[in-house]
Every structure is written in C-alpha cells, then in structure tokens.
C-alpha cells in the first residue's frame, strides 16, 4: 500500500509554489508601489540609477540581518557596526589596509555578539542592544567625536562613479552580496540549516546540527555585511561620520519584515528582503522627488510596514469571513423578532 499523494500538473505545482513562499505579500506591495509610482512619479524609474543606489543603501545591511533573523535571533548592533567600521577604516592612512581591518572588525563584532548569545546565554535583543550603545561610544572615541576624512579623497570619489551604465560599485557589491547569500541559504548546507535552527532549534540540535556554530556564522555574516556597508558609505562620502547609520537599523528591519521574514525565525528569504528593500527604496525616492517631507515619508513607511504585517494570509482569510458574517448579521437584524 502507498500512502500520500504526489502533486502533479503544472497548475498544481504553481499553486504549491505560491502557497509555500513567504514573499507573496511583499510582492503584492511591491507591485502596488511600482504601479502607483509609475503613474504619478515616473522619474523614479527614468532615474533608475538613483533608485538602485537607494535600494542598495537600504538593502545591503538588511541582507546580513536576514541571516540572523532566520535563526530567530536579532542583531540591533548593525548600525553601530557600520559607524565604527567606517571610522576605523578612515583612521588608517593606507586605504587597502583600512578596508581589510574594518571588515575584520565587523566579523569580530559578530563573534562577540554570538559569544554573548551562545555562551553567556543573553537574549540576542539585549546582547546586541548593549553592543549598539557600546560600539556607538567606541566610534565617538576613535573619531574624537568628529567626522574622519579619508586620506585619499580622490579614490573615494572615483568609487562613487558608475562602472557600467548605472551600476556603481555599491550596486555591484549589493548584487554580489545578494547572490552570495541567496546561494548560501539555499544551496549550502550550513546556510540551509539556518532555517532548521530558526524553525525548531531543539529538533535541529537533536538531528546533530551544530546549532552554536550556525549562530556564530549568522552573527559573523551580519557583522561583516554591516562593516561592508560602512566601508562603502565611507568611500562614497570621502569621510566617516561616527553618527552614521541612524536611519539604517530601522530601514533594514523594515525591508526584511515587508519581505516576509518572520522575526521568530525559520520563515523568510533574502529574495523577500530584496523585495522589501525595492519597495522601500522606490517609495522613498518617489516621495522625495514629489517633494514629500521626510516626516510624512516616515508615516508612509510605517503604514506600509504595518499593512505588510497585518495582511498575513491567515489573517486575511479570517478578515474576509468576519466581513461576511458582519453583513449576514446585519441582514438578520433586519428581521423583526
């Protein structure tokens, strides 16, 4: 006797795929954003190099963050990591050495975060919150509380120029990072096991997965990517600002959440995060082009974020039913008793 059924047919496969993916509502939001922006502020697309740059700015840190969130952990220290790595890099006269040291610092920060979470056993929200403050302070101390200029400003300005067409080095690095993480999380065993660690940690442990090592890897990825963003920002701006990254933390969490990454872990993908970053980036550029004030922009982004979360498919089904029953009740109430 055989149990179970094999799904067959193209339609069935497509339906299955749609039901399995977590990016659905992010995709719908992105489509809505694109349609509305295309009608009302098409400059956002004709000036696509700018939009791409903004997406890369928001998205890069979000990609690293996704690796950690997939395991059900949080990394609030990314913004400070970005600032401190930029300051370290600018403080070292040799550009190449500065970049290497800054990236190493990012990995080291990830290791410290992971030690607190794995060995000391502190909740990652609290551990990385502590690191957020400590690293911000460190950035101020290293920089003596003022922006640190790059010794080689021309190199920085050259770095900001497009390579091919609209593709600046930042956009290129973002694309490479995206592909690398996508491959890591879908094709590499260690990365794929992030989902197991986030989905059911006990089961992952019982199956012989080195859970602690995976958590270390995740925080190291997140720290490295944040440091990479710090290096890119410092190069593009020709100076490192110790207060940098104030807008990065919340924007990258927003991108991940809009893209369907679940904060409790196990669900989501970097594709989703890319979709979230695209939605946010296009929206921000369009609103800026339309002359909408930053404060108003924030209201938009907050609303989009909340809508992305409350339009969870199961919630939607319940909502549809409750609307139906609401009207049914109204009808019944018409009948006198």
């Amino acid at each position: 006797m055989k149990l179970g059924t094999e799904q067959s047919g193209l339609l069935g496969r497509v339906r299955n795929l749609a039901a399995r993916r977590t990016e659905g509502r992010g995709l719908i939001l992105l489509a809505l954003v694109i349609i509305v922006v295309a009608i009302l502020e098409p400059t956002a697309f004709t000036a696509y190099s700018v939009t791409l740059g903004r997406v890369a700015l928001i998205g890069l840190v979000a990609l690293g963050l996704t690796a950690v969130i997939l395991m059900g952990e949080l990394d609030l220290s990314v913004a400070s990591t970005l600032a401190v790595s930029g300051v370290i890099m600018a403080s070292i006269p040799d550009l190449g050495l500065g970049i290497v040291v800054a990236l190493a610092a990012g990995i080291l920060i990830g290791i410290v975060n992971a030690v607190f979470v794995v060995y000391v056993g502190i909740n990652s929200f609290i551990a990385t919150l502590g690191m957020l403050f400590a690293l911000r302070g460190l950035a101020f101390v290293i920089s003596d509380e003022k922006p640190v200029r790059l010794s080689n400003i021309d190199a920085g300005i050259a770095f900001g120029a497009p390579l091919i067409g609209p593709v600046t080095p930042r956009v290129l690095i973002f694309i490479v990072a995206f592909i690398a993480l996508q491959v890591f999380l879908t094709r590499v065993r260690a990365g794929r096991e992030f989902y197991a660690v986030g989905g059911n940690r006990q089961a992952a442990f019982d199956a012989g997965i080195p859970v602690r090592r995976r958590i270390f890897t995740g925080f190291m990825i997140s720290g490295f990517v944040a440091a990479l963003a710090g290096v890119i920002n410092t190069l593009e701006r020709t100076a490192a600002d110790p207060t940098a990254g104030s807008s990065v933390l919340l924007a990258s969490f927003a991108a991940a959440i809009i893209g369907g990454v679940v904060l409790t872990g196990g669900r989501g993908s970097v594709v989703g995060t890319l979709i979230g970053a695209l939605s946010l980036g296009i929206l921000q550029v369009a609103l800026t082009l339309s002359g909408v004030q930053t404060d108003i922009q924030d209201i938009f982004i907050g609303s989009i974020l909340l809508i992305a979360v409350i339009t969870d498919p199961t919630q939607l089904r319940a909502a549809a039913a409750s609307v139906r029953s609401f009207f049914q009740r109204r009808e019944k109430a018409q009948i006198p008793t």
Partner: peptide, 12 residues
Amino acid sequence: LVHQELSLIPEM
C-alpha cells in the same frame, strides 16, 4: 529516535 512530538522543520 522518532520523537513523540514532531521534530520537523516546517519551512523545509
């Protein structure tokens, strides 16, 4: 060991 409580990863 096949556990009493399910130990599968839902998203995999």
